[in-house]
Design a protein around this nucleic acid. Structure first.
Lengths: 240, 240
DNA sequence: TGCCCCTATTCATCTGATTAATCCTATTTT
DNA sequence: AAAATAGGATTAATCAGATGAATAGGGGCA
């Protein structure tokens, strides 16, 4: 085992070396400048704080100073992904393929960990979405869509898979894919969601997974991608 | 479609807005300060440059200025992953599970894209590793191990999957898992690698995949993890 | 007690100066 | 003439210091 993993950042190494835990306050910027701590100037401290902040590792606020946050893979993934998407929206298809495979791969493990309360919560999302669809709402229920899918995986003990999935839904929001979907399409989507949930409740995770895979195929053939500047062939298939 | 994805960074938004391409030179820091460009001070520019650098988006060198790099998902993943590992090495098991599932999920697609030259290259890695094992070399052939696995996926048209796999091998190096492995173990590993490669060459990707999955199970039962501060149960199974 | 204002602390941002790295060119050397 | 070298100019790298903005916490007042 290595003595210590080098993080290519004085600040991050300092955080690790001193064993700061999530929730802890780091020294103030002026204190960090002290030769006993980092021994670098304000500008350099701030550069590194900014990196840590961009990665979601710390929260830095006036007066209270810097607080170490709970680790999450999401911010790093989101930042890099968003840059890619800003460059070329076609990246979305590729990340989407990754997301689908991940959900399939970790499906049973995630489902097995769900509690009765979790299932009730999922059921509520279905209800809320249905209400919006049947009512006079203009807004497509993308929040419930996100909450439903992430809800299935919320007990999964793998921050990396969760981070990728969360970043996927952030990107989904950012590219506003739902804007162009119509009500009939969403009805279909929530039929599938209900089928998935019923199967999970019945303990038949494989049936739920099958329904999920079908449901992603549905998404794939929707017109949502036609608005992109250029269509791209989708070559990866879900492994079963 | 959104007008523009907001990147929460003047600099990154500026790069996108002005359509800079990989290889392009960005304006110098002093030019970026100009109100016509970013209109912020050196310190602020440098903070954002540092974030972009940490994400592997730009390379900034004295005299030549800043160059926009080819997009890669790897740096962001590696940075966040390394911080997690520095906090707690048990994160490695979870990222490893992700890696295994990814390779399985994208296996056939990746294999199908390999050229004859690629296969020759893979064969060379096997040869080089064997030579090191049979010779008097002290060093365990971890470079070939990395090169072999990444080599299988090098043609995969998915920067996100590739980025995750690359970061995995970087982490593998960083935690120095190979240090504690013995020669007999590596012989076994390369037997598997050869079996995998033979199957790929024969066009039987599924057989190759099966061999790969067996080979990861081998890894899992090796004593390499016992050196960690606490053993952790490995609950996720590979989806077949 | 509960509300509001004041103040000290800390971050936020900018400016200017010095140092180090690097490229380009002119000069010297072979 | 070609190659090596030295010097100058450009740019990033780092630092120090100043000013402004945000905010938590205390003290006074109803």
């Amino acid at each position: 085992m290595p003595d210590r993993i080098d993080l290519d950042s004085d600040l991050l190494n300092y955080i690790i070396k001193n064993g700061f835990q999530p929730g802890d306050r780091l020294p103030t910027i002026s204190e960090l400048q002290d030769p006993n701590n980092l021994g670098i100037s304000v500008s350099k401290v701030r550069e590194q704080l900014e990196v840590a902040r961009a990665l979601g590792l710390v929260e830095v606020r006036s007066k209270t100073g810097t607080r170490l946050k709970e680790y999450s893979f999401t911010p790093a993934v989101r930042l890099s992904l968003f840059f890619a998407l800003a460059t070329d929206l076609r990246f979305f298809e590729q990340f989407s393929a990754l997301r689908t495979h991940l959900e399939v791969a970790f499906w049973n493990e995630a489902c097995a960990r769900l509690t009765a309360d979790d299932l009730t919560e999922l059921r509520q999302y279905v209800g809320a979405a249905r209400a919006k669809l049947s009512g006079q709402w203009i807004r497509i229920p993308s929040e419930e869509h996100r909450a439903f899918h992430l809800g299935i995986f919320k007990r999964l003990d793998n921050p990396f898979v969760l981070g990728l999935l969360e970043a996927y839904w952030d990107a989904y929001e950012a590219v506003e894919l739902n804007r162009y979907a119509d009500y009939a399409y969403h009805q279909q989507v929530w039929d599938y969601h209900e089928r998935i949930l019923d199967a999970i409740c019945a303990g038949d995770f494989d049936a739920a997974k099958t329904a999920f895979i079908e449901h992603t195929r549905l998404l794939r053939h929707q017109p949502r991608m036609q608005d992109m500047e250029s269509s791209v062939e989708f070559s990866s298939e879900v492994t079963e």
